[in-house]
Design a protein around this nucleic acid. Structure first.
Lengths: 259, 259
DNA sequence: ACCTGAACACCGTTCAAGT
DNA sequence: ACCTGAACACCGTTCAAGT
């Protein structure tokens, strides 16, 4: 066995001492607590070595538990990835929820959700990719049933949260679409935001992106989308660049984490 | 050594006999020819086992060459993935090029590019994901320099091809944007199409998508985007669903491959 | 009941020996 | 010069033995 395992282990030794192991009320809670501990470790590990280099072996090495115990929590590597996906989407929806309290018109609030999503991608690039990973056949086939149900649940929560912003626009009259089109418009938005963030993060050096100046490319794309559905006020009548800056302030606590 | 390797090997035996090994003019050509052969095998393999289950071991097993020889072509697994990415983007641009010959106004031609891209995702789901994979840090760090240059080259070709459709719109006056905005609009389009296809392919069972009826969701999203940039005629004045069907006929040869 | 780690199949990569 | 496959480190998963 190489010495790299020992190096990893030492590095995470601090963690072992600092973790909160406060009074689990019963056996089930103890297990849940340990699972959270393992997920936190997996999260650190992924940030450090990248999603592709996350291995069960490494998680075992940095945790104080044995292989068998890890496999009691996660039935396979894909199950661990799915669990990380659930964790990731939880953090993401936490950020998105904060958009609700932004003081602005409904289109600006919807913009704030996109900001939250973008910020999330910047704060947690590996976890952002992890969510996509969870959709791949290998994860869908191998992860445990419960885990997939959890994934589906957060997935639905986030979708409904996103819908609610279009609902607001519909209610205040700034967005004139049919009620049943909300689902379509909401999907279009997700797709646009998802694609934009994914490409900006992963293909920044590609010709199509590197040639763009530092113009706010996320805002540009979202504006096209919102203008396309005729959401008032349209971008030629309103300074959304300024809204973006206000939104940035609204999320200042999180932006600070970017260093 | 398990017997699965032998099963794989037998399965691909036919290939070994049918491959074109016609008269390489010199050593360099022989090597190039073998590389194409290996890529074709890797392509088949990926279609069969999925991108995540492609291994060097399997490629060795299904090919008539040894590990050492495979490693003479691809310096590491990531280099193989990058080579598959180049292969993939070549096929993709082949489809996109065909959009140029679609008889329609400039917005319809641009729509045909989106159709080509979508069709490509349906025809080659694994290769579609492969291109994204090539952008990940692990591939960018480990693939050979030449391979990354090849990737960059096709990447640029495709970007310029996409730009040309907006250029046409600008020239015939249907699209009123500044010349220097083409790059931005082109990126927005790529991002939207990319996100839409990726999600439709990978997250079809997620709540946000499964609730949508069989409406043409790709067309819906692209229309929002094109309307957002004010590309004439806008979707409320024109039957783009009909255009879509015409485009489908234009690509009939490829559509047939979907079975 | 739950935990442990040895054991095994598979995978990525290298390189001494062969042609 | 190019090819081969044995060898090795690492990884995913299981399960007999221990508590």
């Amino acid at each position: 066995m190489g010495c790299w395992l020992n190096r990893l282990r030492e590095k995470y030794q601090r963690h072992c001492d600092s973790v909160d192991r406060s009074s689990p009320r019963n056996k089930a809670e103890k297990i849940l607590q340990r699972e959270q501990e393992l997920l936190q470790l997996a999260h650190q590990l992924v940030d450090e070595v990248g999603l592709n280099n996350l291995t069960m072996e490494k998680l075992v090495a940095v945790s104080p538990y044995s292989k068998g115990t890890i496999y009691n929590h996660f039935c396979c590597k894909e199950d661990l990835l799915a669990a990380l996906g659930v964790h990731s989407m939880g953090l993401c929806s936490e950020l998105m929820l904060k958009a609700q309290s932004f003081a602005g018109n409904s289109r600006e609030q919807a913009l704030a959700v996109h900001y939250a999503y973008h910020l999330y991608g910047l704060l947690e690039p590996a976890l952002y990719m992890c969510v996509l990973n969870c959709k791949t056949p290998s994860v869908q086939e191998k992860a445990s049933k419960q885990r997939l149900e959890q994934l589906e649940k957060v997935d639905k929560q986030i979708a409904q949260l996103c819908d609610s912003f279009f609902q607001k626009g519909l209610e205040d009259g700034s967005l004139r679409i049919a009620q049943q089109d909300i689902a379509y418009v909401s999907f279009a938005n997700w797709a646009c935001s998802f694609g934009t963030n994914l490409l900006l993060q992963n293909a920044a050096e590609s010709f199509a992106i590197s040639r763009l100046t530092e113009t706010n490319r996320v805002l540009f794309n979202i504006n096209l989308m919102f203008d396309g559905m005729g959401w008032q006020p349209v971008s030629t009548d309103y300074d959304y660049q300024q809204s973006w800056q206000k939104i940035e302030l609204h999320f200042a606590d999180y932006v600070a984490m970017l260093n």
